[in-house]
């Protein structure tokens, strides 16, 4: 059967499943649902599945994209979604399955939401300070690379970002960040605060991917 694309969410307890473990989890879910993934040829065959943008452990998402191929020739795509959802572990839910028309390389931006938690600091004026920080011209921080340490400017990878005070010592954020070329790991947002402006760096931060976009800011599917 042709290549298919699945859009799924990974939330709740499932956010701690690593990328590699997710591959095995998917393979088993397909086989429980009565379908089999196509495998690569060779000595150590692996299921041919690829996830557009691997998600780091601890980050939630409601918009993951995974391409796969089934061994079976005739597959009812509508029922496949329900059959898969009946066999997924808690927190993984298939939203739709379709034949893709666009290449993953066209994916450029990601809308994300996040929460910054502050334990013993007032968040009243925090929003303004955070907004001011992220509207700087450049935000250069040290980053671990393959060859030791390098410097990276995260600012160009942030298309927009806004902050809202929330009850209980937290600040919510919504941002659009670069998904690839270069990839901005959302963890670099609190990391840049810790490096350059620790007074407003949160005690804990968590993120959810909301929607992928192409370079023209059209929703990518």
């Amino acid at each position: 059967m042709n290549k298919l694309r699945m859009r799924f969410s990974k939330t709740g307890r499932a956010i701690y499943i690593s990328h590699l473990d997710l591959m095995a989890t998917m393979q088993r879910a397909f086989s429980r649902a009565g379908n089999r993934l196509k495998y690569s040829e060779g000595f150590n065959p692996r299921p041919q599945i690829s996830i557009a943008l691997p998600l780091s452990v601890g980050c939630a998402s409601v918009c993951e994209l995974m391409d796969f191929q089934l061994l079976e020739e005739q597959v009812d795509i509508t029922s496949l979604k329900d059959r898969l959802n009946a066999t997924m572990p808690e927190g993984i839910e298939v939203q739709e399955i379709y034949e893709p028309t666009r290449k993953n390389a066209e994916l450029k931006w990601l809308a994300i939401e996040g929460v910054f938690e502050y334990d013993d600091r007032s968040v009243d004026i925090m929003c303004n300070q955070l907004a001011a920080f992220f509207s700087r011209e450049s935000i250069v921080i040290e980053k671990k690379t393959k060859r030791g340490f390098g410097e990276v400017d995260v600012r160009p990878s942030i298309r927009e970002i806004s902050f809202f005070a929330r009850a209980g010592g937290a600040v919510a954020l919504a941002a659009t960040i670069s998904a690839q070329n270069p990839t901005l790991n959302p963890d670099l947002l609190p990391a840049s605060l810790r490096a350059l402006c620790p007074e407003i760096a949160p005690d804990f931060a968590k993120f959810t991917r909301i929607e992928p976009y192409d370079a023209e800011m059209k929703v990518f599917r």
Binding site: R13, Y16, R28, T87, P89
Partner: peptide, 13 residues
């Protein structure tokens, strides 16, 4: 390390 072993939520739990 390997946080998924501390969360539960597996299939068939």
């Amino acid at each position: 390390q390997k946080p998924a072993r501390y969360t539960g939520g597996e299939y068939n739990q």
